[in-house]
Amino acid sequence: MQFTTTAKTLAAALSFAVIAGCSSGGGTQDGTGSGTMDTDGMTSGTSSQGMNSGQNMNVQMPDVMTIYFEFDQETIQSKYEQVLNGHAAYLKANQSASVVLQGYADERGTREYNLALGERRANAVKQYLVMQGVSASQIEVVSYGEERPAVEGHSESAYAENRRVVFDY
């Protein structure tokens, strides 16, 4: 109990740290200059799109469509920031493009609760993209929870491959 609560708090703190990191350093990481986002990601995003659209007309859709999560976590791991920044750049450069963020969980626990966990993960990705300046109207979140596992089985490696968010353009 205690441990879980602590872990959660820690997770929340980490999550905040990651987002804060994006806010201040996002512009330097992928060179798209998404700018500093405060509370109003959408409005700031629009202005940053204006800034970027000219140079990013031919931004390619990234190859990597799936990012993975730790057990019981929705924190975006820093190793995926580049992937997400790539998607953000693509979406900003192609405002008519839209994406469905499919959220997934591993099979452990109840199905309905896992739907909620999957949605939380997809929402974390959405929030990240919006903070990078993507219009929220280009993003839809659909959680599949533990339905449609990428890999069957009860191993840790199967679980790790199933805790994911998939970009579905």
């Binding site: 109990m1 609560t5 309905e112």
Partner: peptide, 9 residues
């Protein structure tokens, strides 16, 4: 109902 308002479900 199930809630994780206290941390875990």
């Amino acid at each position: 109902f199930t809630s994780d308002r206290s941390g875990g479900p």
